[in-house]
Design a protein around this nucleic acid. Structure first.
Length: 493
RNA sequence: CGGGAAGUAGCGCAGUUGGUUAGCGCACCUCGUUAGGGACGAGGAGGUCGGGCGUUCGAGUCGCCUCUUCCCGACCA
């Protein structure tokens, strides 16, 4: 009975519900009582922390430094860049007052009408404006450049509809903001950061991504070019997992950030910004997980190995404690995170199911029988295969297995994605097939009209002009005009 | 902001044409037996039925108002 209640909805039955249940039951996060916001629970946060540490290290290798800028932005800053304000204005939370007072006509507190701010403050939806307002004071000469700052912070966007990790009103992210003396250097930086995101997704998250550049309509508000990584979820929908923007001199001009170049001529600084968010958690969950729960890549699992003892008597437990403790400490000295779970208030079956739900990559089960035989049962989460192996050299076996799991889930995700990428040149065929999800490589004439029609007809959008895809000539499947690009089209989260 | 649905214990729900002390499953606590795939038995704790006003001898149930949440759209990372 207990089993039925804890079981997840099957992925194939209702993908959204499966995802929601998984997030809650695996103890990653829950819906907050505060509108559209999310509580990230310790286990979910531990995974986020692993991502953070890894990414942060990769950023620093390219010379990026961390900094921190204010949460509140004067309203006027936002309107300095025309496209930027248009993109974000409709989802900004605004601070209008700075004081409450006790309610004269009843319980509680009310906003003190006398405490209205002269200029309202907005809660950052992104920080380009306040950062470029600050950069103005930091930049005088080409010798001050480049500036390569990143901040880890929260932002707020008042979304109409929210989903755990994928779209919440408040979310955690990193936003990098760089200033450069030349256009080329800024463009290179925007591309470099995209490369880093792609490497992180594939190497650590084991999530294959398509890299590319966004169409004009899908571009970041205020950018000249938006580069993106797009991942495919198991329902065939695309998830934009990270973006890197070449901002040109838009923000330099809007915030009057000028420097003297080598020729002693004033010039506006060139900008990039790039970010990934807790949405990556959604990508991680939806790429690998199955009907038994989460499947975590060993590279990001907060706990890589769990050891479960099985015993009847106190003496047996003592013997198991000794052996398992030895294995655990050996594994730890190899840099592997291990938990030895000899709690006696949960039965083994419960522990098995629970650690599977949480996606722990490797489980070792050791009982008195094994101790006599010098063996241990090893289960890998990705395939759920069990094997009984010798206790001799178990540490090396586990280390190797973790590497294999990391590789296997990546290969599996690549195979899934590749089998759901279709080349398509007929609009009728496209409309029919896109209902079931997948990525579609199609010729596009480059016009906004065609793009809008595809979206109206099918809800699918042009995700990007992918890099590394042969740009062979073709005919736009909607307009019948000559195609300018071969684009990736998909329904997206 | 349009169109649907729902608010009863931590979670999931039942509650008949209005009628005594508001139930059930899971989870939780205690004791015991158990332990190689989500244990079993016995006992126990937990509720101003989202809020307000009204109708009535009597409201979880009927009426009006209000708040919130979820789903489908439009918008978005």
């Amino acid at each position: 009975m207990a089993k039925e209640l804890k079981e997840l909805t099957k992925r194939s039955e209702n993908y959204s519900e499966w995802y929601n249940q998984l997030v809650v039951k695996a103890d990653l996060a829950e819906q907050s009582d505060v509108r559209g916001c999310m509580v990230i629970k310790p286990y979910g946060y531990a995974i986020w922390e692993k991502m953070q540490q890894t990414l942060d290290g990769m950023f620093k290798e390219t010379g990026v430094q961390n900094a921190y800028f204010p949460l509140l932005i004067p309203k006027s800053f936002l309107s300095r860049e025309a496209e930027h304000v248009e993109g974000f204005a409709k989802e900004c939370a605004v601070v209008t007052h700075y004081r409450l007072k006790t309610n004269a006509e009843g319980d509680g507190v009310v906003v003190d009408p006398n405490a209205r701010l002269e200029e309202e403050l907005i809660i950052r939806p992104t920080s380009e404006t306040i950062i470029w307002n600050t950069y103005r004071n930091w930049i005088r000469s080409y010798r001050d450049l480049p500036i390569l700052c990143n901040q880890w912070c929260n932002v707020m966007r008042w979304e109409m509809r929210t989903r755990l990790f994928l779209r919440t009103s408040e979310f955690l992210w990193q936003e990098g903001h760089t200033a450069h003396a030349t256009k080329e250097e800024a463009e290179d930086r925007a591309k470099l950061m995209l490369k880093i995101y792609a490497e992180f997704a594939e190497k650590y998250m084991a999530v294959p991504v398509v890299q590319g550049v966004k169409s004009e309509t899908e571009r970041f508000a205020g950018a000249l070019d938006t580069y993106t990584i797009e991942a495919m979820m198991q329902d065939g929908k695309a998830l934009q997992s990270g973006t890197s923007h070449f901002l040109g001199q838009n923000f330099g001009k809007a915030f009057d950030v000028q420097f003297l170049n080598k020729d002693n001529k004033p010039e506006y600084a060139w900008a990039t910004s790039w970010g990934v968010s807790t949405r990556l958690m959604g990508a991680l969950i939806m790429t690998h997980s199955d009907d038994n729960g989460l499947v975590l890549p060993p590279a990001l699992a907060p706990l890589q190995v769990v050891i479960v003892p099985i015993w009847k008597t106190g003496e047996q437990l003592e013997a198991l404690n000794a052996k398992a403790g030895e294995i655990a400490s050996n594994l730890k000295s190899m840099g592997i995170s291990v938990k030895y779970d000899n709690a006696d208030n949960k039965r083994p079956g419960f522990k098995f199911a629970d650690y599977e739900l949480k996606g722990i990559p490797v489980r070792l089960v050791i009982g008195s029988r094994d101790l006599e035989n010098g063996t241990v049962e090893v289960m890998r989460r990705d395939t759920l295969e069990k094997e009984t192996v010798s206790l001799d050299g178990i540490e090396a076996y586990v280390k190797n297995l973790l590497d294999q799991i990391q590789e296997n889930i990546y290969k599996k995700a690549v195979a899934f994605r590749d089998s759901h990428i279709y080349e398509c040149e007929s609009y009728d065929e496209f409309k029919e097939k896109v209902k079931d999800g997948g990525f579609f490589l199609c010729p596009w004439d480059g016009t906004v009209e065609t793009e809008a029609k595809i979206k109206d007809d099918t809800q699918a959008t042009i995700r990007c002009v992918p890099f590394g895809v042969e740009q062979k000539p073709g005919i736009d499947m909607v307009s019948g005009k000559e195609a300018k690009y071969r684009v990736l089209i998909a329904k997206a989260y």
